[in-house]
Amino acid sequence: MFNYPKITRYFFATVVLLFVFLLDFLGLLGLSTWRSGVIDWQAKNYQAMQVLTQPLAQVRQMWQLREKLEDLEYRYREASVQLTELEALREENQALRNLLENTNQVHQKSFITRPISSFAKPVLSLGSDSDLQVGSVVLGEGNLLGIIEELGKQQARVLLLKDMQTQGVVAKTESGVKGIVKGDGKDILFTEVLSEAELNLRERVVTIGQEGIGPDIFIGRIVSLKEQDQAKSTQTAILQQDVNFYELSLVEVQP
């Protein structure tokens, strides 16, 4: 009725498996040393496989290099075209520059520096070490801001137009009315203008040119006219500049 040998075998197998499960459950079959050994062995296998598959990897790398080369060739051709365009632009630029230098603007050496405001005194971070001289012109975005007043080794104090009470800059309006730009400590004034001359609001005022200051440098625009003194034969206008020394991040100095 019962196949006892078969039952015994299956019973034995079940007991063995349960015993192994029990050992595993109790953590007695961790086999950490064996596992680390196997991992080392697999690492060696992986290295060997990499060596074996190196030709394939090289072929793939060559394919990638070919694609890269094609891309570079394309970029080279593109760059050549751009270079030709740049050459043309450079020639055009040089021609324009020559034209400008031959007319009214002389291309000269200039310094770019940062303005420093110390106790509301306008100072530059350049000095006699940089071949600056007293009287050098200070420009901000092409606007005449002032001249160098005092010179240290590495610092220069700027005399702004509004502070020029003793000296002045000879200037003219767009319509050719001449005068002198000075300051009263508060505003920039366009003074010594003949009373017969007509000054228009928003008119531009530029330099005429004098020692140390080149011609046609933009100073500012006329924003108002002062009350004319009947006793005097001259009139005065107030100018406003487009830029402010204290708000600029960089200024230009022409020695």
Partner: peptide
């Protein structure tokens, strides 16, 4: 032959557990 078979299957389970970093019970 039955015991050989059981031993072989157990050995295979151990090897699988070792080489694939699995639990021995799961492999069995």
């Amino acid at each position: 032959s039955f015991y050989y078979l059981i031993a072989s299957l157990l050995l295979l389970s151990f090897c699988l557990a070792l080489f694939y970093q699995l639990g021995i019970s799961i492999c069995i």
